[in-house]
Amino acid sequence: MQLVRNWFNKISIERIQLELMNTAYGSGHVFLSALDPRCMILWYLFFAIAPWFLSNMIVLAGLFLLMIATTVLSRVSPFIIFVLCLGLVGQVGWLFILSLFFGGDIASALPLLKLTLKLSIVSLASITVFSGMDPERISDGLLALGMPAAFSFSLSYGYRILPVLFEEFRSVLLSYRLRGRAPASPGFLYARLGAYYLKMLVVAFFPLMLATAKRSRTTVEALETRGFSFGMKNPKSRQLKLSHLKVTRRDIAFLSGTAAYAALLFWIGAAYPLAI
């Protein structure tokens, strides 16, 4: 209850905006973002796929440790980690409790723990790569690996337009509040106040849609005058955009280091097949 009250008091749209902007733009130039994005994505692909085919607890635990290390290196905001933990505990924890009802026992916890490990490895890998890296670099990496140019453009455009959208949304919400009436009492479990804000959130998209429609027209027209559609069909443009991507010794060291570590894990795993 207190939590809900705090939420309503503390959370203002400005606050949310700030938090989100911190998350979105705050990722500094940490160690991992200096690596070549293509290498990072390949690295990620391995760790996103491999765990599903593994069942050795030692290997999984080892990979998990590696992921923790890289996550720490990439200095992800604690907020993201928190969300991740919440999701994992929620999903798997309830699975476990429910399975008890259906005749499971404590033994069923182990496979589920393994599932949690797998999920964590995959999630942490994606957090390491995609949160630690500058989004521009991600999009360059994806472009280099063959994603359509529209995607990489949209990503950087998203970064550009987010603050603008937020400003607009804020003023629309403000208009609703300045001319609306909040419920006199917050209601049971703050339900009435919550409903008031939720409804406002939905209704606010009506003016926002119209305003955004107006904006996208100028944007698309301006894109045309700046040779965007021309560039999309121009292989030279793509080549130039990606010319700054270079695989350096640091990348090779990183990839081979992880590979060596993984190999070591597999070797240990093979020696002690703890496949519970």
């Binding site: 603008v164 027209e221 560039g231 121009n234 130039l240």
Partner: peptide
């Protein structure tokens, strides 16, 4: 012909200043 719109803010499509300035020449592959 370069064009600056009245609602110029909607004309800026890249997140950082230098990227924005590079945008057109990059599109032309210069």
């Amino acid at each position: 012909v370069g064009y600056v719109y009245q609602d110029f803010e909607n004309q800026l499509v890249r997140p950082t200043v230098f990227d924005e300035a590079c945008f057109a020449p990059l599109n032309y592959g210069l």
